[in-house]
Design a protein around this nucleic acid. Structure first.
Length: 264
DNA sequence: GCTAAATGTTGAT
DNA sequence: TCAACCTTTAGCT
């Protein structure tokens, strides 16, 4: 679930439900003890930077949430069910509540800490203030494989294992090509494509990247089978050319690609 | 009931 | 490069 599109989706929803109101903040699990210091304060803003969520409360206190691999945010109208033993944080205001479970991070930051956090992130394709040139400067000078660079949050913020695999497939780019050998036009294409795909991910809540996913259907629901070109399709026929999709470990994560379609 | 895997990051070696 | 951490779920038995 959680690549940048998930985080931005949460930010949009929480902006609408909670910003501009005093918010009840608690930590049923007890591991976010600072919840007590925020409880009842007005929430001023919610922002997403890459995979990071930042809630700004009155008094310039920020809650920094990172879902990591397993984290989940559930937002729904009240009444809220009893919190689970693992509910790290619960927000509620005005008839809505949100439960955070299993995050890698849920911590209180001051303004300086928030600034430092944002400063270390590369441009986020989902943000209008993003400057893709900043990413290009790093990519075009790096000997690292482009597939590793796309996953580096200091280079580009918000892309995860699914978007990286799918964007490289759609660009026809060999994932092992060193950043220095990527053409500027290729990077422009990847950036534009990532923006498009991720925006549609914010809308749908899913990562859908194939032509098959675009096809209108009676059910309105795209089956998981049709969602991706290569992600988690090891050994199955490439949708474009039939070559078996390959996979390999790269920097601790599984990379998926089509060796025929991705030679560019 | 158990195990492995998962769209992620950090800190130690 | 590797292990640790956060939690749920799918696929076994």
């Amino acid at each position: 679930m959680p690549e940048g599109h998930t985080i931005h989706r949460i930010a949009v929803e929480h902006e609408a439900r909670f910003v501009g109101r005093p918010v009840a903040v608690s930590s049923p699990q007890g591991r976010f003890a600072d919840a007590l210091r925020l409880d009842g304060r007005e929430l001023r803003d919610v922002e997403a930077y890459g995979k990071h969520l930042l809630y700004q409360f009155a008094g310039r206190r920020f809650v920094h949430v990172h879902l990591g691999l397993f984290g989940r945010m559930t937002t729904a109208p009240e009444p809220a069910p009893p919190a689970r033993a693992t509910t790290r944080m619960r927000l509620s205001a005005d008839g809505w509540y949100a439960d955070l479970v299993g995050p890698t991070r849920c911590q209180l930051l001051d303004g300086d800490q928030r600034t430092r956090l944002v400063a270390r992130l590369g441009p986020d394709p989902l943000r209008d203030d993003a400057d893709p040139t900043a990413a290009w400067v790093r990519i075009s000078r790096s000997p690292q494989p482009v597939a590793a660079l796309l996953m580096d949050q200091q280079v580009v913020a918000g892309i995860g294992n699914v978007y990286r695999a799918e964007v490289l497939f759609r660009a026809g780019l060999d994932p092992y090509r060193p950043g220095v050998e990527v053409e500027p036009e290729q990077w422009e294409g990847i950036w534009a494509d990532a923006r498009r795909l991720m925006r549609s991910g914010v809308r749908s809540g899913r990562i859908l990247t194939t032509d098959a996913a675009d096809r209108p259907r009676r059910s309105g629901r795209v089956p998981a089978e049709d969602a991706h070109y290569v992600y988690r399709r090891t050994g199955r026929a490439c949708r474009r050319c039939g070559t078996p999709v390959r996979s390999a470990e790269l920097a601790g994560r599984t990379l998926y690609w089509c060796p025929t379609c991705q030679q560019g």
